[in-house]
Design a protein around this nucleic acid. Structure first.
Length: 486
RNA sequence: GGCGGCAUCGCCAAGUGGACUAAGGCCACGGUUUGCAAAACCGUUACCCUGGGUUCGAAUCCCAGUGCCGCCUCCA
C-alpha cells in the first residue's frame, strides 16, 4: 500500500516519499490571531490534523509546525492597509501582545475541542524577528530584494519561477492589478519583506533599514527554515493562500536557499455557509464557539471529514443535523460493543470475523492512501458498524477477544486516525453510587413493575416525561437502560 | 478581465477509463423486532448537467455549451 497525495504544485496525485526516510517535515499556515476562530479554521486544521495522524499511523516520525501570526498580516492585502493585530488591539484598547494572547488561547481551546493534536511547534512571528531580518538581509545582499524608503521589497523579476504554484503570469498580474500602484516598488507585483513603521505604529522592531515590522509572507519562510530545514516535505494551507502568500514564500525561500522549498503542497478547500462564501465583509462568519453551542465539536469534526479536504464544504443546519444523526449511529454501535465487553466471557475471535476485520481495515487504509479520502474511510466504519450491530443483537454469546478486536479497530482507525470515536463515552451513567443513577434505578424498577402488570399508559407516560427532560429510556430484552439525550 | 475548481439518488457525499448491476450518511416508504416505542437489522429509490468525440469499453479522457463556486480586496 502506498500513500498518494495531490500536490498543488504539479497538479497531480503523487506517491509520497519523504526526503529523509521515516521522517516527515510538515508546515501548515496557522491563524492570524486577531479574532476567535471560525468554521473555516476548523475545516483547515481538522483536515491537516488527520493528515498528521495518518502519517504517524503509517509509522512516520512527523514534526508538525504551525505558526501563529501575530504581526504583519495587513488588512487590504499583504502589502497595504493596517496591521490586523494592531488595528484590533487599538479598537479593543489592548496591548497587541495582550490581544494576541487572548486569541491564541481561544484558538487552542477550540482546536482542542475539535480533538486536533497540538502541533509540535507553534512558533510566533514576533518571536522570530531576528531570523526574519536575517533572511531579508540575505535576499538583499544577493540581489533578490531592494530597500526602498525604509521598507524592503522582493524583486519578482529576479526570481524567474515566480508564478509556478498559482499559474499566474506576471504580465497578467500587472494588467489586472487591483492594488494601487506603490511608488516605492520597482514593479507592482514586488512584495514587501519588511515594512517601515510610521510614527505611532507601536508594533515595531529595529532593523538595518530603520524601525519597522516584517511582511506577512516572510515569517513562514523564516520559521519553517529554522525548524524544518530548507526543504520541507509537506506545506499545507488554505486554497486562498496559494496566491499571493505561498507564491511569495516559494520565491523568498528558493531565492535564498537555491533549492526546492516544498516537495508536496497541500491545499484544502473553503467553507461556504448556506451556499454562500463566508467572508468578513458578508457578515456570515460562524465562530466555532457559536457552532459548539449547537453542535458537539465531534459532530463538527465528523461533518468536516465526510467531505474530502480538497472539496468545498457547505455549512448548514440541515447538513449538520444529518451528520449529527449519522455520528450518533456510529457511536451507538461502539457504545453497545463496549458495554458487552464489560461483562464478556472469555472466548476467541472466530476466523470469519478476523477475516472481515482485515478486509475492512484494508478498505479503510486504501481510502486513506488515496489522498486522504476520509469520506471513504468513514463509510468503512459504517459498514463495520452494521455488522457489529447484527453480531451483537443476534442473541449469541460473543467472546471477549472478539469484542476486543473490534474495539481495537474502532480505537485505532476511528479514534487514533480520524479522531471521531472517543476513548470513552460519558453520556451513559450507570454508577450505582451516583445519586442520579440511584433515582433512575428507582424510576426504572417501578416502571418495570408497571410493565409487568401491563400498565402501558403509565409506563409510556414515564418514558415520555423523562424524554421531555432529557433522558432516553431503552427497553431491551435484557432490561431497561437509560441515557441522557445530547 | 486573468487563473482555478465543481456539476453523481429528495438532501449531503465517495468514486476519475473495465468486478459501477455507482460506497457511505440523512430523509422517505415497506418489513423484522417491540406491549407500543427507541435502538438495531433486511428491503426499495441514480441511465452520473447537455451535446458531440476518443476507445473494444467513459460518471471517469477530449471538445463545445449551460449552470454554480473560489482565488486575483477582507478570509483558514
Amino acid at each position: 500500500m502506498t500513500l498518494k497525495l495531490y500536490n498543488s504544485l504539479t497538479k497531480k496525485k503523487e506517491v509520497f516519499t519523504p526526503l529523509h526516510e521515516g521522517f516527515v517535515s510538515m508546515y501548515v499556515c496557522g491563524p492570524t490571531v486577531y479574532d476567535h476562530p471560525h468554521i473555516g479554521h476548523a475545516k483547515s486544521y481538522v483536515s491537516f490534523d488527520v493528515i498528521v495522524r495518518y502519517l504517524r499511523y503509517l509509522g512516520y516520525k512527523v514534526r508538525y509546525v504551525q505558526n501563529i501570526t501575530d504581526v504583519g498580516h495587513l488588512t487590504d492585502n499583504a502589502d497595504a492597509g493596517e496591521d490586523k493585530i494592531l488595528k484590533r488591539a487599538q479598537r479593543e484598547r489592548l496591548e497587541p501582545a495582550e490581544l494576541v494572547e487572548i486569541y491564541t488561547r481561544s484558538y487552542f481551546e477550540d482546536m482542542d475541542a475539535l480533538n486536533n493534536v497540538r502541533p509540535d511547534i507553534s512558533p510566533r512571528a514576533t518571536a522570530h524577528i531576528p531570523e526574519q531580518i536575517e533572511l531579508v538581509e540575505k535576499l538583499v545582499s544577493e540581489g533578490f530584494a531592494y530597500p526602498s524608503k525604509g521598507s524592503v521589497y522582493f524583486d519578482v523579476q529576479k526570481y524567474k519561477e515566480y508564478g509556478k504554484l498559482s499559474g499566474r503570469k506576471q504580465e497578467e498580474l500587472e494588467a489586472g492589478a487591483r492594488v494601487e500602484i506603490n511608488p516605492e516598488k520597482r514593479n507592482p507585483s514586488d512584495f514587501a519583506l519588511w515594512k517601515k513603521a510610521e510614527a505611532g505604529h507601536i508594533m515595531r522592531w529595529r532593523s538595518p533599514w530603520g524601525d519597522g515590522f516584517p511582511g506577512w509572507h516572510l515569517e513562514c519562510s523564516a520559521m519553517s527554515m529554522k525548524y524544518l530545514g530548507q526543504t520541507l516535505d509537506i506545506h499545507g494551507g488554505g486554497l486562498e493562500n496559494i496566491f499571493p502568500h505561498h507564491e511569495c514564500e516559494i520565491a523568498q525561500s528558493e531565492a535564498a536557499n537555491k533549492q526546492a522549498f516544498v516537495r508536496y503542497w497541500l491545499h484544502n478547500n473553503m467553507v461556504t455557509v448556506n451556499g454562500q462564501k463566508m467572508g468578513k465583509s458578508l457578515g456570515n462568519f460562524v465562530t466555532l464557539k457559536d457552532a459548539f453551542r449547537k453542535y458537539h465539536p465531534t459532530t463538527i469534526r465528523f461533518f468536516i471529514l465526510t467531505t474530502h479536504y480538497r472539496s468545498p464544504l457547505d455549512f448548514s443546519n440541515e447538513a449538520l443535523d444529518a451528520a449529527d444523526k449519522g455520528l450518533e449511529r456510529l457511536h451507538n454501535a461502539v457504545e453497545l460493543l463496549r458495554e458487552r465487553l464489560n461483562n464478556a466471557k472469555d472466548g476467541e475471535t472466530p476466523p470469519h470475523i478476523i477475516e472481515k476485520l482485515a478486509q475492512y481495515k484494508k478498505a479503510f487504509l486504501e481510502a486513506m492512501d488515496e489522498d486522504f479520502n476520509t469520506s471513504g474511510a468513514i463509510a468503512v466504519l459504517f459498514d463495520l458498524s452494521k455488522d457489529v450491530n447484527s453480531l451483537l443483537s443476534d442473541g449469541q454469546e460473543v467472546g471477549r477477544k472478539c469484542l476486543e478486536d473490534i474495539d481495537t479497530f474502532y480505537r485505532q482507525l476511528g479514534g487514533d486516525i480520524l479522531g471521531i470515536i472517543p476513548k470513552a463515552f460519558e453520556s451513559r451513567q450507570k454508577e450505582e453510587s451516583d445519586a442520579l443513577g440511584n433515582v433512575m434505578n428507582v424510576v426504572i424498577n417501578t416502571r418495570t413493575e408497571l410493565r409487568k402488570a401491563k400498565q402501558w399508559q403509565l409506563s409510556d407516560f414515564i418514558r415520555n416525561k423523562l424524554l421531555e427532560i432529557g433522558f432516553v429510556l431503552d427497553d431491551r430484552p435484557d432490561g431497561t437502560t437509560w441515557k441522557k439525550t445530547k
